[in-house]
Write a protein that binds this DNA or RNA. Structure first.
Lengths: 201, 201
DNA sequence: CGGCATATAGTCCACATCGACTAATCGCTG
DNA sequence: CAGCGATTAGTCGATGTGGACTATATGCCG
């Protein structure tokens, strides 16, 4: 059985993360996510949402907790996050936070990174920074070689842009790591770091 | 009949652009595109490629030009770009080059921008630059307001990164426009611009 | 020169997405 | 208070994607 975490779509992850705030029915998820502009990260349509929730239930990451009905409207089925679901978000974020392919997935992972402990995020983003650095050198190396071989510039345009964005991403990541590391930024879940001055157990 | 250009996937555009270099069978397209690392821009699998080619034929953008067979291997069906297909690439690129949503599409459009005349690209990217500037101000404005309201920084992380990338993209676009405009860069198709010193018409 | 990995060329199916559709209720305006 | 658009809640079908699968031919290692 392939790990269920492999099969999670970005929307699925966002749904699981949302359900940490309490039980909900799919329509309310759509409303809330739109209101918070989470459709900036993934496209949200009715079809996809209901389908996604169905899959998550079959995978055991969500559980149906009740069907109520107001007036004569369609039934509202409310769903609840299971503990397997809670773990799945964390695992998924752990995986995606360090990867440098799949930019769309990374944005979601970063937005949900507060579900991980601070030092774990630091470690993962440090690994990411290393991968970005490697990509950066091969990228610039490739560009230089291509220009030496006088490859017409018009064929290098997209690569040149990508290199520029890579530069920016490297700088941002480094800066963010500093901010995270010196605890300038408050962080959500329990911090496993040793508190100031207290001996480590 | 909805405009066929609306329905083009990034891979479809890349295929159409590739076929400008000559007739080909799908398997060769896959080989060539992989070799040129065009799978950096879009994911290329057998299933999607053959399916895409089929659609393009039904849309009249490609035409079957022959079935040959070497030895006892499966038939190779060769396809050719129609003039409608040639127009469709150009129209698609025109549309996507100015848009700032859909980053994946933009990368493809930029990579295929040499299919348009230089001054057209300048115009489109100038429009894009304006849109990016607008997005840039609303983005930074939103960030500033959120920080004034003391929204915890952990919820702004992804937005902060996006703002940084937006900065980089703005700078790159401006620089590229300069390089394009002063003809530092050679450009492929007929340049409709008035040549140096020659009177217009 | 037997065998086994890889390249060639393409088919097929399970799954995900998008958008159109239904259908009831609520809110507002004239 | 009749009418009408927006909101609530969800279903359904067409289309696109990814990966597994088939089947032949070629290269090459010992």
């Amino acid at each position: 059985m392939k790990d269920v975490v492999d099969r999670l779509t970005p929307l699925a992850v966002i749904v699981l993360a949302l359900l940490r705030e309490g039980d909900m029915h799919p329509y309310e998820m759509i409303r809330l996510l739109r209101q918070r502009h989470d459709d900036r990260l993934v496209s949200i349509t009715n079809g996809t949402m209901y389908h996604t929730v169905g899959r998550l239930v079959r995978a055991g990451l969500l559980a149906e907790v009740g069907i109520d009905r107001a007036g004569n409207r369609p039934e509202r089925t409310t769903y609840s996050l299971t503990s397997a679901g809670r773990d799945a978000v964390a695992d998924w974020v752990r995986r995606e936070l360090a990867r440098i392919d799949r930019p769309a997935e990374f944005r979601v992972a970063l937005a949900e990174a507060h579900n991980l402990a601070r030092d774990e995020v630091v470690d993962l983003l440090t690994a990411r920074h290393a991968a970005l650095t490697a990509e950066h050198t091969t990228h610039h190396h490739g560009l230089r070689k291509a220009r030496e071989r006088e490859v017409p510039e018009q064929y290098l345009v997209e690569i040149d842009r990508q290199a520029a964005l890579l530069d920016a991403e490297l700088r941002w990541t480094a800066e963010f790591l500093v901010r995270l590391d010196d605890t300038t930024i408050a962080w959500g879940p329990p911090d496993h770091r040793v508190p100031d001055g207290a001996p480590a157990h």
